[in-house]
Nucleic acid binder design. Structure first.
Lengths: 336, 336
DNA sequence: TTGAAAGCGCTAACAA
DNA sequence: TTGTTAGCGCTTTCAA
């Protein structure tokens, strides 16, 4: 049974609760004899501290929550792994929260729902705006992930989407491509993330003296390979010609790849592709996918640094930090 | 501040703590006037119940933990999503635990680590044997997922791996394939899962009068596309000829597909492929992948049913339930 | 229908 | 170095 209390151990060892507590917490000033007796009692009774009680008293839960739209999206799953490992290393356990990108569920994340449950929250919003976040947010320590504009009051770790999109597009231009499309931004509510990437995309084209052809901007109904495949298939069937595609994320790239190949076009010879996120699968598609890779390990470590400072009581303005990224060039954008 | 206590609300509303508690818990026998006053006080103070305190008293945490090796493996990510949604629907939050398949971390899952933190544990072991599980397990309600032999004392939900492997292999035989290989079982410690699948594979071959060629059993160093690609590439380079491949999981199938195509062979014409798990990506590879699909929704619902019964106090012998599966036939195993 | 009070098991300030 | 004890904020029995 788990109903062994601190007092029971104390009784068996013939000491007070405080002494047992000292032993449990490895407090140094305990005589060896007493320590041995207490440890024997703990072992004999199979004592385990009641975490709820400890929490009630300390106000700390030792848990963090990680919130984003959907863990079955590979980028989030891979992010969850990195954050979870880093959290474990620092002595926290991780609670997983999915919002499906729904506004009211995102609101719950930054406001009431977590109170008292976790010491802090790491949150990558899909839908909430900076304004809304600062409006709804409560006292729980919070760090935002991702690329949207964040409220000045909240810590935030991102990559430089503009620069990365510029870099990816410039890479395609250097390959001699001129009819370059963009795939995968939201059809209805354009996210800040997509917007930044589109701006970087446009900037690179402008630098090369190419004006953006709005007909080559292929938005999708949702973030999925299926949705991107449909958008690209539809565009090709309408007779639209592209020789390169910058994709908002790797799922879009995988969908685009599939649609292009289904129509008998070759990648990269006819159409070069660059994706985004460097999910594991991009190294195993045929051809393998070039992609923008965020340094997720740095992202996670930085986010946890900021969060731990907040938990420790730091109350200054929001810090806005940039994690590095790189362009991973694979077969889908190799020079022919 | 979140330091508003039940007592503060009671003071402001001019009632006792019990009455406030009644209102918070929607206890019906509270007069309308009092209820309104209490609700106003709650709103004015921004009161939120302290969950740690509630837990200390009720002994319930409202949390479940889901444990498996690695959330960045797509099958587990997709499973986590399903389980998380189902848990949320039932009023639980989900804690994520990764073991990396390491024995001592798996031991922690079934023994001490979760005590007091969660009401129950759903665990898909990678390494632990049935014997070890029953040896180490403590009092936390536990349901096992997956296909390994489970201890008689523990609840367990699985799919019929033998039957599914038999079915997948028979499907390939019906295509006229005769040199059928198996890819992706562990090189060192063969898991129960792989074993069952290999047995089903062998059974189907035997039924068709084909003896298993041990040279066509391609084990891998780990569960990953890279590892499977290496194993298949190596086999092909050694001159081994296959006309079909049953893969232990979709990651292995994706790796195998890549290795086969790199060597100029065509799928399914030269080599047909069947994977396992029906991860989202299998619908977007080129060609799309045939695969064994477990009914994960049923799996999750059943696991939570069993777990909730355990949490409610059921103490009978372990139940061993089977979730249904199906063979999803896609391009990788179409008749030429 | 509402109030008073006894814990839940632990931590930590204070005493010895 | 060890013991005593007052809470942490809530639920819940029992009384009123």
């Amino acid at each position: 049974m788990a109903n062994v209390r601190l007092q029971d151990v104390a009784d068996l060892a013939g000491v007070s609760m405080k002494t047992v507590s000292n032993v449990v917490h490895a407090y140094p000033h305990v005589s060896a004899g007493v320590r041995a007796r207490v440890e024997a009692a703990i072992a004999e009774l199979g004592y385990q501290p009641n975490l709820s009680a400890r929490r009630l008293v300390t106000g700390r839960t030792g848990m963090l929550s990680l919130a984003f739209s959907d863990v079955s999206i590979p980028y989030f799953a891979e992010l969850a792994r990195v954050v979870s490992n880093e959290a474990t290393r620092r002595g926290y356990r991780l609670l997983l929260e999915q919002t499906d990108g729904e506004l009211d569920r995102e609101r719950e994340i930054v406001s009431t729902r977590e109170a008292g449950l976790v010491d802090g929250v790491i949150f990558q919003p899909s839908t909430m705006s900076a304004n809304e976040i600062s409006l709804h947010r409560k006292d729980v320590p919070l760090v935002l992930l991702g690329e949207q504009a964040a409220p000045v009051s909240v810590d935030h770790v991102m990559i430089d989407n503009f620069a990365a999109a510029d870099q990816a597009t410039t890479h395609l231009i250097a390959l001699g491509r001129t009819r370059i499309g963009f795939v995968g931004h939201e059809r209805e509510h354009l996210s800040e993330t997509s917007l930044r990437r589109l701006e970087g995309f446009q900037h690179a084209l402008a630098e090369a003296g190419i004006t953006v052809d709005m007909g080559l901007l292929l938005s999708t109904a949702e973030i999925s390979a299926a949705s991107a495949a449909a958008a690209v298939a539809d565009a090709l069937d309408r007779g639209i010609v592209v020789d390169a595609l910058v994709c908002r994320d790797d799922l879009a790239a995988i969908g685009a790849l599939r649609a292009i190949q289904e129509r008998g076009l070759r990648v990269p010879n006819d159409v070069a592709i660059v994706g985004w996120d460097n999910i594991a699968m991009t190294a195993f598609t045929h051809p393998t996918l070039s992609t923008v890779a965020a340094d997720t390990a740095a992202l996670a470590a930085t986010a946890l640094d900021l969060l731990e400072e907040r938990i420790a009581g730091f109350a200054g303005l929001g810090r806005h930090l940039v994690a590095s990224h790189s362009l991973v060039v694979r077969e889908s954008s190799l020079a022919p």
